[in-house]
């Protein structure tokens, strides 16, 4: 799958789900992309570099979200 096609597929998949949550495990992204983890990682990393996705970390676990969805860095400290 080409990058542009995969990118759109992931954006569509995540947008559908953003009503209930804004952060996703890496495995959710690989499932949407229907790719093996290592191939999905290349797409996901490129999308982070392009500013479409962003990381979220609890310290022990990492998640991904569409940039701008959910709470933002500037407002993270607000209740």
């Amino acid at each position: 799958m080409e990058y542009e096609e995969a990118k759109q597929k992931l954006i569509d998949g995540l947008t559908k789900k953003t009503k209930s949550k804004s952060k996703f495990y890496f495995s959710d992204l690989a499932d949407i992309l229907e790719m093996k983890p290592r191939d999905a990682k290349k797409i996901v990393n490129q999308m982070v570099t392009d500013g479409i996705l962003e990381f979220w970390s609890s310290g022990s676990t990492s998640m991904y979200g569409l940039k701008g969805m959910g709470k933002q860095a500037a407002a993270e400290h607000e209740a």
Binding site: V48, F55, W56, S57, G59, S62, E76, H77
Partner: peptide, 24 residues
């Protein structure tokens, strides 16, 4: 302390852990 955050340095998904206090 509140849990986690999206802060980090560009391109890195680790190495920085967001921490915010709930009594600012």
């Amino acid at each position: 302390w509140k849990h986690g955050g999206i802060v980090g340095v560009f391109g890195y998904g680790g190495g920085v852990i967001g921490r915010y206090c709930d009594q600012p």
